[in-house]
């Protein structure tokens, strides 16, 4: 029993969050390389899912565990940088895991039918304060 709990504890510590990197889905003629550059150059970002669709740039990011306290500032910084890179796009960057989750869902979708509606929905819940 004691050994089992120690093994479970170690496994729990090791597995944590292992997904890393930047995943980008681009359905627009814009070049997505500068997105990757901006995200990868920030040392706090662990995982990012980015979707470019029509005039929208949606980015959900996950920051390193100990950077979580300032994750809002990190997201704001990235947002400003991306806005400079893509002046024609409406940029939304959020460190909230809900945004990451929903963006990932959209990326994995086969058809682009409901993208507009979904993106509007994500942007609206991202703005909610309470």
């Amino acid at each position: 029993m004691k050994k089992l709990s120690i093994i479970l504890l170690i496994l729990g510590l090791l597995t944590g969050c292992s997904e890393k990197g930047t995943y980008i889905k681009n359905t627009t003629p814009y070049d997505e390389h500068s997105v990757e550059n901006v995200l990868m150059s920030n040392e706090h970002v662990k995982l990012a899912k980015v979707l470019l669709y029509e005039d929208e740039l949606l980015a959900g990011i996950r920051v390193n565990t100990f950077s979580r306290f300032k994750k809002k500032a990190i997201a704001n910084k990235i947002q400003k940088k991306l806005e400079r890179e893509y002046p024609d796009l409406k940029v939304t960057v959020s460190a909230d895991s809900k945004i990451l989750l929903e963006t990932e869902k959209l990326i994995n979708k086969k058809s682009e039918k409901n993208y507009r509606k979904k993106i509007d929905k994500i942007k609206s819940i991202e703005k909610e304060q309470t």
């Binding site: 945004i99 989750l101 819940i125 991202e126 909610e128 304060q129 309470t130």
Partner: peptide
């Protein structure tokens, strides 16, 4: 609440 409803990390606390 975050996964199955329309709550973000911030709004899920309520």
């Amino acid at each position: 609440y975050i996964t199955y409803f329309d709550f973000t990390e911030r709004t899920a606390s309520n």
